[in-house]
């Protein structure tokens, strides 16, 4: 071979002081002890406890929290999605299943007859929202994915997703 280069890494020399570990152990102890006593403070405000007592105290999600998907509606309450499958194409978890169908209204043409998101598989990346050309899918429902006992309960179908939906501000058909 001959072209292997060897890099010698010197051990970091420890002084006797460091090697005895005692100062460092004391330093560590002082950190943990200060935490310990700080969190025993009778004034709860002064404690630095980060635990969220979830079911009792429900925290507001931030505005841009990516939660449960919702399917937006048209002005007449029909699903806004046109089944272009951009979202299911980009979805890295491959968890959106869409079957397209011909709509009775020729101005709509294509709409999803089946639209199922497996919320268990979803990694909540938000790429589907980015990909959607119609502002039809959003994740701003402000709800997290609800826990379920059965796998199928995590399959959210079109109508369920539409229940969370709302009207979009974007003009239908875009600006002309």
């Amino acid at each position: 071979m001959g072209n292997v280069t060897v890099k010698n890494v010197d051990r970091i020399k420890q002084t006797l002081w460091e090697k005895s570990y005692i100062p460092e152990i004391l330093r560590g102890l002082s950190v943990t002890t200060s935490h310990f006593f700080r969190n025993l403070n009778p004034n709860k405000e002064k404690r630095t406890i980060f635990t969220r007592e979830y079911p009792e105290v429900i925290t507001e999600y931030p505005e841009r929290y990516r939660g449960l998907h919702r399917l937006m509606l048209r002005d007449d309450g029909q699903v806004r999605c046109v089944a272009c499958m951009c979202c299911s194409t980009i979805c890295p978890a491959d968890c959106i299943h869409i079957e397209a169908g011909e709509h009775d209204d020729p101005t709509i043409e294509k709409y999803p007859t089946v639209f199922v998101i497996d919320e268990l598989r979803c990694i909540v990346c938000g790429l589907c929202v980015e990909a959607c050309p119609c502002d039809a899918i959003r994740m701003d429902s402000g709800r997290h994915i609800p826990p379920s006992l059965e796998r199928d309960e995590a399959f959210f179908d079109r109508d369920l997703l539409m229940e969370l939906g709302g009207l979009s501000e974007a003009k239908q058909g875009g600006q002309r």
Partner: peptide, 9 residues
């Protein structure tokens, strides 16, 4: 330009 619903896209 309705590419999202166009089969040719």
């Amino acid at each position: 330009v309705d590419c999202p619903i166009c089969d040719q896209a």
